[in-house]
Nucleic acid binder design. Structure first.
Lengths: 141, 141
DNA sequence: TACGTAATATACCGACAAGCTAATTAACCC
DNA sequence: GGGTTAATTAGCTTGTCGGTATATTACGTA
């Protein structure tokens, strides 16, 4: 039983799980709905396992509706992770390479983030993204 | 060989490694200097291994000075992680529980973070930290 | 040259993570 | 009750991780 932060980061360290979270950003979904994009490359129990990891990490809550288990996103643990990362904010801004200024500009241009950088670049979610640096943000979501 | 983001998160999913990064925020340090706070609970090769993980994740750069290997912090991968997390910013702000408003207040009150929430609560770093925000950056690099 | 120190390499271990298949539970509908 | 669908559990294999102990490389110095 590791600490909360470790469990959070550990849960995020898998592209499938990140894609699941990304999908849940669009609203609640059942397990099969969540699994659907992966079923070519992974079985349903596999997805269930990943969901379990996210669930014990506190980022996904499963309710029950008859035989379905609608899952919802819970960002509470992400707040801790973001708070941890906040400590490094000044360092990131200091090193003004690649993403640096972009990110700081983006975070400083508060709230209504039309961002969507690379939600799940490595996952067979049909929407192909591709970062396209020219589209400063917009599109996608 | 997982993707970059997974490797980054995976590297962060360990309190020892997070403590190492935290220590490096104060400036470059050799391996033994970095290991010193842990030597009661872990051997030197153990720390070297953790450093290796951080190194292959691109968050630590080892240079060499005679038989010493001064390590420096490299926040580049953290930018990607922060960018990923940025997507969930709006969700975090929407759920205004515990940390929510505090964090958003904090990020909105840009840069000079006198923050220091819980850098390494679970690790025997004798320097009771607090990073002294006066050294806005300077030194180190 | 020999010695002490800094750091890594190698080999080994137990534990856990990720994936599968097959079987099982749970709820609905006829 | 019988059949169907949703989802989980169980058991297994494979691979990686965290840690140790020991040996080795590299350097500075007496």
């Amino acid at each position: 039983m590791p600490d909360t932060l470790s469990r959070t980061f550990s849960a995020l360290a898998d592209p499938t799980r990140r894609a699941l979270l990304a999908r849940l950003r669009a609203g609640e979904a059942t397990v099969t709905q969540l699994a659907e994009p992966f079923l070519g490359q992974m079985t349903l129990p596999g997805v269930t396992k990943h969901l379990k990891v996210l669930e014990t990490a506190g980022m996904v809550t499963k309710t029950r509706d008859a035989q379905w288990r609608p899952c919802t996103l819970n960002v509470e643990p992400l707040k801790d992770a973001a708070a941890w990362m906040e400590e490094y904010r000044v360092h990131m801004e200091a090193s003004l390479d690649r993403l640096g200024d972009y990110l700081s500009m983006l975070t400083r241009a508060n709230s209504n983030s039309p961002t969507q950088i690379s939600m799940n670049a490595d996952i067979p979610v049909e929407r192909t993204t591709t970062i396209t640096p020219d589209t400063t943000d917009a599109d996608t979501v």
